[in-house]
Every structure is written in C-alpha cells, then in structure tokens.
Write a protein that binds this DNA or RNA. Structure first.
Lengths: 341, 341
DNA sequence: CTGAAAGCGCTTACAG
DNA sequence: CTGAAAGCGCTTACAG
C-alpha cells in the first residue's frame, strides 16, 4: 500500500504542506505562522510550531526566493580572504547582516578582474538584494553587469568622486601623502616607496607619496620599487634588498602595507641594519604584529571593521528605500608613530 | 497599449521564456541549449546564445534549484576567518569547488556551538549537496540537524576514530606529543604549555603534550597555562608573563599556536629574556612570520591547504556517489626546528 | 533533435 | 484571523 514515488521530482524533504496538514491549517496559514506570527492566532501559531518541531521541518529557501522574488542575499566581493584587512571588513559586514537576517555570499576575486566578472555573474543568478564591492574601479564587463542588474551597490575602501555612487572608506591618496610628510618632517630626504600587487589602493598610496615628495622637491623615480607580486613578508624582505641596491643612499622606506614592512624589517635584522637608526621603515594598515614587534612599526591605522559595518548599513538602508542611496562616508585614518620610523 | 503589471509578482527580470521566444524555440529547448548544449542542434544553440547575449539574460538560481531539487551548494563552516589556517583551508576547498561549478556558502562559527547551530540550520534551507565541518565534536543539535538532513559531511583538521565518518587532517594529539618530545630531547625538563581558545584542537595538542611529559616523568600541572580567550599576539605576550610567574624555573614553552608564540617571543625581547638561550619558545602551524622573525620560530607545519583540497575532493566524490563515502585521510605534519627552540 | 504539460515548494493578492 | 487559487521561473519525464 505504499505510493510509488519513482516518478516524483520531489526532494523528499518535509514540505510546508505536510506541516500545515499536521497542524490542521492551510499551507498559507502555516506560512504566515512562521513568517508573520503576529497575524495568526496564538493557538494556530503553537500548533504549527509543534508540527515544525515534530517533523524537523526545514524551509526551502529556493521556493521562498522564487515565490517572493526576494532572495535576502547580499553579495560581498573582496580581493583577498587571507588579508587581515578584508577579514575585518567582512566581520563588520557580518554584524549588520546578521541583525537583518540576510545571507552573505562572500567571493574572493584574488585581485583579478576576470575572477570578479565570473563571481559577479554567478552571484547575480541568486538575485541579490545588494552588492558590496572592494574598490572604485572595475572592468567594463563588471560595470555593465551591475548596471543591467539594477541592484544597489556600495563600494568599500576608498572614496568615490562620483556623487551618484555610494562609497565608504577613506582617502588612500591622502593617507599615503600623510605618511610621506611624516617621514619628511622627521628630516628624511631620500625616502623610498615599496609597492606590491599594484592594486588600486597601492597605486593611490603611491600617488600620495609622489605628491608629497614633489611638494618637498624630493621626488626621484629611483626611490620607487613597484612589483605586481602579491604582498608577503618574504616579498618585503626581497624588495628591501632591491631598494638598497637601487638607491643605496635611501634613509627611509614607506612600504605600501605592513606585511611588506615586517619583511623589510626582518631582513634588516638579518643584514645587521639598525632600524630606525640606519634605516627608517614604515608600513600601512596597522596589523596586530606592528605594535608588538621589536622595533614596533610606524604605520597608518585604518578603520577596516567600521568600513564593513558602515558600508553594510548604507546598503541596508538603500535596499529598504530609505536613505539617500548616494553619498560618500569618510571614516578617516590615523598615523601611528612608533619605533621603526 | 502597455500591459498593466501592477498585480504582477514577477521580479521584472528577463526570463528563459523571453529568450526562447526571441530564439524561436520552446522554453525547454532554450534550457537545454544552455545546460546540455550537445543535445541541441548547432543552429538552435547559436540562436539561443545570441538571444541570451542580446537580452542580458541571467538565469534564476532559485527557480533552477527548485525545479531540479539540486542546489549545487556546498556549505563550509570554519571557526574563524581571520585565522590564516582556515583561510588556507578555504583556498584549498575553493580550488575543487571552482572546477566542479559548485557555489560555496562560507560560515564563520566564531568557535561557538550556538553560532554553528544557527548557521547550519540557516544553510540547510539552501538544500546543500554537501557540508564541510571543522573539527570532530559538535553539539547534539548540530549532530541531529546533520543526521536529519542526510547531507554528506566531511570533517576537517583532525582524524576521526569513527569509521563511518569522513575526515581529513592529521592527529593533533600526535603533533602535540611530537613537539614536546623534541623539546625533551633538546634536554629541557621544565617545559611549559600555553593554550588559548581551548577548542578541540588546542585540547588535543595539550593532551599530546601531557602524554609526552608523563612518559618522560616530567609532568607538572603548574607548567600549564590554559585560558579560553581568543589567541592573539597580545595574549601570547600576556600569557608569557603568567607562565613565568607561575613557573619561574620554566626552560621552554610550547605555545599551542604561532600567534601566541610570536607574542611570547616579542615579550621576551621587551623583558630582555634571550630566546632560546634563557627560554626556548615554540609554536604550532608555521605562519609566514615564523620563518622570518628574529629568532625564527620552531613550530609544526600543517597541511592546511591540502586539508581543504582533499576534504572537498572526498565530499565531491561522496556527492557523486562514487568513492567509499567513509574513511580517514591522514595528511600528516612536519616539525620545523628553527632558532627559537 | 524538439515540445506540451506538469511540477518543484513556497508566497501573493484577494476574498471572506 | 483564515483559505482557494494562481503564480514565481525554471527542469523533468515523456512523447514524437
């Protein structure tokens, strides 16, 4: 007396209809009991809840998304997951997202336009309610996908000059300029810049460095070491050597991030170069080790957690239709003078 | 002459039906042209592809999942995203997942059972095809959700003794024992253990430490400093102080991970304690800085990338129905003797 | 190689 | 407060 299910296309899981039947109500009342409990009598609500518990009912998200055309998905694209900075950004986003019951789809673009395009077109299939992007500049294909989708977008990390765009971060350019001026005020003249990855933010910091050097009449291309490789401690160690070979009279080095600075400092220790006495070294981002290393590392502290938090908040408001849906949120940065420079 | 859409529940996006119409074929032929192009004539395939491009068609994932009861989703739950170890694990998973066209749903449990339960029950709504979990022990609620779902699960990081369970990793216990024996063989007798977070893996390493100490007749509870706080460089610095206060005759310290070891070493530098001459310090995991610091850090190198890769491969095979669907994959570990111990 | 119909499991307007 | 019917946008067997 068993029903044949050989032709069934069902997933085999308990459905809302079964829950409703057990609770003695219609499917739609069961749906309401779960999603808008205040619109249902207490008695019905309790019966439905009991049926849910007894049957171990798990709602089908795909069905819900399809019927409501509401995915509750937020997409976030970051260039790296192993970078502490973006971990903190994601933590900040998560705090907002958790409270609002969204589901986060996290994509790692690995600093690649092609990866970003691929991830975006895949994630767009989930009909996201909003998108959080890292950086301001994207490939034409990405811009096109975004425009066609009509999904609200907030850019993170740097500030847009386009008033129709939402962005949360701080001026990477100004931060680079600030650090360089600090070194100049310390009396250094031959100040090198080490940059890796050559992503948007590194290039902006480098531009800020260049501006400060030009303003002080100290600019010299031989003081720049720029490579496309991914940042790492090992690379910092290597690039220190390259800088010293290229500009032996270098007195201070501004590394575009702390990983490189740490590597450069460790390499100095191996070569017997005293930091900061013989060579000043500073970084960017203020990773945890920077405060603890010997010497501690002069760097720029960046509001990464808050960037994630505020960007997600802005996005949430844009989705809800309240909020200007445009606007730049400048969260600033803080120079951290320490022992290394 | 415009149709009223005020009562429409549509999302407003271009659907497959529109693509099909433009291509002059039925919806299902359009579906096939996209998903099983080899089962369709070249002419039709081209016409459909052109229509897709012209209309900027983006498939609706929810509809596909609902109709096929195949989500193509893989869930991965890790206790931390800021820990380098789990970033590498995720990288390894990603490599397998990308090739197989799955979508990854990454959840951060923050070392909390309650968070794990919440994430799992949320993600189960997406009807995942497989689940990757960190660690072997989970709350009864999680075990129940997993059992009810019937979704294949692979555990990562440590090896299960339960032959019906799939797990990929290495023996955390043996690794802890190995490191302790190394210190004993170096001639140390008063060997301390610093543990934080007190997650499953830390406790296993501690148990391995204890076993080695007992086997050598060196066990002493006063040599253990165990705190539930999250690991960090700052905590390592603090716990070094606590260890030295608690066991002033301590000759060597085994930190349950590299973050703590780095903090302990930096603190030694601040206090003028020579490492390893006055105090040997070692860690666990071999983070990038360990090879570069001065002194370089003796530690255990762990196959985190491969853990992710092999776990995802095992899961993929289990989903495909081939493969034993059980079994432990022991990826081992490597002691890295360096300067600090 | 191609198609008409039914169905996946929910939610939405509408009505009462 | 509750329900019958339709619909979301795809894919699945089945048939030709």
């Amino acid at each position: 007396m068993t029903r044949t299910v050989s032709k069934s296309r069902s997933s085999g899981r308990t459905t809302l209809a079964v829950v409703a039947q057990r609770a003695g109500v219609s499917t739609m009342t069961a749906s309401r009991a779960l999603n808008q409990p205040e619109r249902v009598s207490d008695e019905v609500r309790v019966r439905v809840e009991q049926a849910v518990a007894a049957l171990g009912y798990v709602p089908n998200r795909a069905a819900r998304a399809l019927a409501s055309s509401q995915s509750n998905v937020i997409v976030v694209l970051v260039p790296s997951l192993s970078n502490f900075v973006f971990n903190a950004v994601i933590d900040g986003i998560q705090e907002v997202v958790d409270a609002a019951n969204y589901q986060l789809l996290i994509g790692n673009t690995r600093y690649s336009d092609a990866e970003e395009e691929k991830l975006l077109s895949t994630y767009l299939q989930s009909n996201p309610m909003g998108i959080l992007l890292s950086g301001l500049t994207h490939s034409p294909r990405v811009e096109q996908l975004l425009a066609t989708s009509g999904v609200p977008v907030v850019s993170m990390m740097d500030l847009s000059t386009d008033p129709t765009q939402m962005s949360v971060g701080f001026s990477q350019h100004e931060a680079g300029r600030t650090m360089t001026r600090y070194l100049i005020e310390k009396g250094h003249k031959r100040i090198g810049f080490i940059g890796a990855q050559l992503d948007e933010r590194t290039l902006s910091r480098a531009a800020g460095y260049r501006q400060a050097m030009q303003e002080a009449g100290l600019a010299d291309e031989r003081l720049e070491v720029m490579v496309p490789d991914a940042s790492s401690i090992a690379l910092g160690a290597e690039l220190l050597g390259r800088m010293l070979a290229q500009a032996p009279d270098c007195e201070a080095i501004f590394c575009c991030n702390d990983d490189l600075a740490h590597g450069a400092i460790y390499q100095c220790q191996r070569r017997g170069i005293a930091v900061p006495e013989q060579l000043a070294v500073c970084g960017f981002n203020d990773l945890p080790a920077s405060a603890w290393m010997k010497p501690s590392v002069t760097t720029i502290s960046t509001p990464r957690y808050r960037i994630g938090y505020e960007a997600a908040t802005l996005l949430r408001n844009a989705i809800a239709g309240r909020a200007p849906a445009v606007g730049q949120v400048d969260l600033g940065y803080t120079l951290m003078p320490r022992e290394s420079a």
